[in-house]
């Protein structure tokens, strides 16, 4: 089961995403993709840690290469006894996309790699929630790197929505369901 949660900045995506996993009985992992650089990032990380406190998440900081992620404890175990019944919340695709794109001073196309990562997470969990962001709504013509980033995140979002069982857009904390194939 995979849910994609989207929306603009500060629209209640995180809070809503955590609520999906509130009643989840199994082990819960939070994959944080934001690199802790700068004051604002640190403040955002501290705020999100506060929101998650006491909710039973194990935090994994992972800025790239989601497709190769091995959950803590799964490393030496055979496939059958891994955390396959776990819940995973990944936040946020916008950071992940930037981290994958702007590596080693080059601009890479991150789409295929990120989607492979999402499918991998879906395969190793029973409840997956992916948080993403809407960045193409201001009509501004940006320089090449930023324009490429807006295009790439749009593509990642469209492909992730195809893969997801459920897609929800948050508007000031109100969840609007765009797709629901949950059985």
């Amino acid at each position: 089961m995979m849910t994609l949660v989207t929306g603009g900045a500060k629209c209640g995506k995180s809070h809503y995403s955590e609520r999906i996993l509130d009643g989840f009985a199994g082990k819960k992992f939070y994959i944080a993709t934001m690199e802790p650089y700068g004051e604002e990032a640190l403040a955002a990380i501290a705020r999100h840690r506060g929101l998650r406190a006491g909710k039973g998440f194990t935090t994994i900081e992972r800025y790239t290469d989601i497709d190769e992620l091995i959950l803590p404890g799964d490393g030496g175990r055979p496939a059958g006894v891994r955390n396959s019944g776990c819940g995973i919340l990944l936040e946020c695709t916008a950071n992940l996309c930037a981290n994958e794109m702007f590596r080693d001073g080059r601009i890479c196309d991150p789409t295929e790699k990120i989607l492979r990562g999402f499918r991998h997470l879906r395969d190793i969990s029973s409840e997956l929630v992916i948080v993403t962001n809407e960045v193409g709504n201001d009509g501004i013509s940006y320089e090449e790197g930023t324009a490429a980033y807006i295009r790439a995140l749009g593509e990642v979002n469209r492909l992730a929505a195809q893969t997801a069982d459920r897609v929800v857009e948050c508007v000031y904390g109100i969840p609007v369901t765009l797709k629901n194939q949950r059985k």
Partner: peptide
Amino acid sequence: MMMITGGAFSG
């Protein structure tokens, strides 16, 4: 008339 809107690269 029919209108289709949404952000850039939204499909």
